[in-house]
Design a protein around this nucleic acid. Structure first.
Length: 270
DNA sequence: CTGAGATCCTGGGGGC
DNA sequence: TGCCCCCAGGATCTCA
């Protein structure tokens, strides 16, 4: 579920709430959800660790530990990380609970159980196959244009490829393409330079605006404090089948691309 | 290197 | 009300 803006919002919340806390114990209710390197016991390794930082890489939530180890959480479609107070009831589908010494806890819940919480050793290159961060100085228009050349793949498929640009998911791919006025199925290499620049700008703009609004809660996304986002109120195309395009009034259509629902305007996305 | 399709799961919603 | 089918913020694998 969560894409870059939602994960960023969760990570910022954790930076404010769990950094400085010490882990008292780890409760693993569904073993496949907590992954550690061979020979390492997930729960035992984390006991007594202090959280020294919280951040994000692509769609992964990072918790940095005093030992140099790192907890890397992938939320996939329905995962949630929730900071909970003593006595507060568990959220349904809670599979891993990080208990802190002050009796608060961090719950990892995921009804579909696609998500994973992974313990990474110091120096372990867990993210080497991930592409460029779209909200970073290195994501320049030129770098983006370079990714498109010679590629026949549909531009939307390229935006979703985490090996190239890391963090864009289905919602923001649809929204950025609408903002730039580009047809999702257009072969990447067929974008003119001005179109590629427009799309580069739209990607950064959509992600920044979504972060400002604390993400998109289409269905059940909430941040670490249980708060919904606000970007669902300003979506231009995602999930808006049949509704009028805000730019040209034509009805929004839904097609399928790379096995994902794709919402766009046939009239003004070319 | 591509793209397609299946897979991992549960739950909500629409149609009948 | 009940059942069946489709759909869902993702990523990884196999196959052609």
């Amino acid at each position: 579920m969560p894409e870059l803006p939602e994960v960023e919002t969760i990570a910022r919340g954790l930076a404010n709430t769990v950094v400085g806390k010490t882990i008292a114990s780890i409760e693993i209710r569904l073993p496949k959800m907590a992954v550690a390197p061979p020979g390492v016991d997930f729960a035992r390794a984390l006991r007594g660790e202090r959280i020294v930082g919280a951040g994000r890489r692509a769609k992964y939530v990072l918790l940095d530990l005093a030992s140099g180890r790192r907890l890397v959480t992938s939320l996939r479609m329905t995962g949630r990380l929730l900071v909970q107070r003593p006595g507060e009831a568990d959220f349904p589908g809670t599979h891993v609970v990080v208990h802190y010494t002050d009796a608060t806890r961090l719950s990892f819940a995921d009804v579909r159980t696609f998500g994973r919480m992974r313990l990474v050793e110091p120096g372990e290159e867990w993210d080497k196959s991930l592409g460029i961060e779209p909200i970073s100085a290195s994501f320049t228009p030129e770098a983006f244009i370079g990714m498109l050349s010679g590629r026949t793949t549909p531009i939307k498929t390229l935006l979703l490829d985490q090996h190239r640009i890391a963090g864009i998911g289905n919602i923001y791919a649809c929204e950025a393409l609408w903002e730039a006025g580009i047809k999702p199925g257009k072969p990447a290499k067929a974008l003119t330079k001005p179109a590629a620049r427009r799309l580069h700008h739209a990607i950064v703009d959509v992600l920044r605006r979504a972060i400002d609004m604390r993400g998109t809660s289409v269905d059940d996304y909430v941040d670490a404090e249980g708060m919904r986002g606000g970007f669902q109120n300003v979506l231009a195309v995602y999930g808006r089948l049949g509704q009028p395009c805000a730019r040209c009034n034509a009805p929004i259509v839904r097609t399928v691309m790379a096995q994902r629902g794709t919402w766009w305007c046939r009239s003004c996305q070319r």
